[in-house]
Amino acid sequence: MPKPFRSIVPRRPPSRRARKSWRAPLSLAMLVNAGAIGYHLSEGWDWGDCYWMVLITLSTLGFSDGDTQTLSASGRVVTTLLILGGLVVVQISIQAVLGLSESGYFRRLRERRFRSWLSTMHNHVILCGYGRIGREIAEQLARENVPLLVVEMDAERREAAEERGLAVLMADATLDETLLDAGIHRCRALVAALPNNASNLYVVLSARGMAPNCRLIARSDSEEAERKLRLAGADQVVSPYVSGGRTMAATALRPLAVTFMDLLAGSGCEVEEFLLSSDPADLGSLNGASLAELQLGSRSGALVLAIVPPQPAANDVQRQYRGSQYSQQRPELLANPGSDTRLAPGQMLVVMGSQEQLDLFTRLLGTALKSVDVMST
């Protein structure tokens, strides 16, 4: 997991007070050098003794035997001027440093460092919202060692995420500027888990408009909200209530099947989604070939669990919208595909195997592969 950083807020131009605060340290540096030059000219000391004399004079540590030499009349004048100047400049410098802290200068400095680090994030997941659902999502991603950035406005939730060692961007996730700062063009997926449907809809609309190829997952509380989120461009919409009810019902009927993914967690096996390119030219000889002809399973050792047909294009999805009615059509999953099943552009292969087997499976697909996503186990 990345090292935790403090949250950031929208940029503000530096205040005049913050800019003027640097004049006092500059005056202090000029006083120190002027005093050292005065001792060097009046007493003829080397620079080390000169600066040491300036230091013990300005810091009011006092003089002890062996620290200084006998001062001449001009040296006493330099010391007197140095003390008088120090009374003014040192006090002003201390007040200036305190002023920088009060004006938020050091906080903005940390923010700039955070933004600089944020621009280096790639292939991460953007999690909008760190409520109860967001925390569970973060825990699952942490187990998979997936880079995660949390976007949250609530101060308490921000602190809770930071205590978990998560990177937090304190900003409004519904704004385009926030998604750009979060790296919407460099992330592997965005999860909209905000408390209300309207906010999640805004996030999906903004993200889809800026990053057409980004994978978007959204939370919904009703079937109507799910239809609208899919129309806005969400690749997957999850209702915690519906999913929870289905899981509880399935557990009562088929407990082993429900806990299958949990059993895989400690077995060394993983399940990954291999999305094929939608361009037939990228598939080459794989286009139209059957699983029996390709022998992907026997050559890699991985098992093809299912094949998902190509997803409908965004324009096709929008055509399904007619007035207030929305026909939700999802592609059917082909589980346990037979040896005569043929590959086609845009298909998604759900494959299970060890990491070595999955790596070999990836190499066998070659240029036909568009992306690989790990399914949480």
Rank of each mutant, 00 (worst) to 15 (best):
M170P: 00
S42T: 15
F5D: 05
M121H: 10
R227C: 06
P2E: 04
G44L: 04
N315I: 12
N196F: 10
A24W: 08
S64C: 09
C214F: 00
R319D: 10
T68A: 06
L296M: 07
N287G: 07
S371W: 02
E270C: 08
V374Q: 07
T174S: 13
A225R: 09
P310S: 07
S101C: 02
P240G: 05
G244N: 06
R107E: 06
C214T: 14
V54Q: 07
G323E: 14
V351K: 01
E356R: 15
C269R: 15
M352F: 01
C128D: 04
S15W: 11
G44Q: 06
L61V: 12
S101L: 10
P345A: 04
A335M: 14
M30F: 10
A189N: 02
P312I: 03
A211G: 08
V372Y: 01
L365C: 10
R330T: 15
F361T: 04
R6V: 02
W45P: 04
N213P: 00
Q295S: 11
C187P: 00
G366S: 11
M53I: 12
S72W: 04
V304F: 09
H40D: 03
M210Q: 13
G104F: 01
A225W: 09
A193K: 03
A313K: 05
R246N: 09
I217V: 15
E272R: 15
A257P: 01
L264P: 02
R143K: 15
T79F: 06
L109M: 13
L28H: 07
S371E: 06
G233N: 06
I137M: 13
L84E: 01
I8S: 12
A289W: 13
A265I: 00
V97Q: 12
M30D: 03
F114D: 04
R246D: 07
A155H: 06
V150K: 00
Q295K: 12
V271S: 05
M30N: 03
V372C: 05
S199Q: 12
A18W: 00
L28P: 10
E272T: 13
S376E: 02
K228F: 14
V90I: 14
L276F: 05
P345S: 08
A155S: 10
V32L: 12
A36D: 03
E273C: 05
R113Y: 01
E43Q: 15
T251V: 02
A306S: 14
I92N: 12
V304S: 06
R19Q: 09
Q357E: 10
Q355N: 12
R230N: 12
D262E: 12
D154N: 14
A225F: 12
G85K: 07
S220W: 02
S222W: 06
R227E: 08
W117V: 04
R246Q: 09
V304P: 10
P331W: 04
V203C: 04
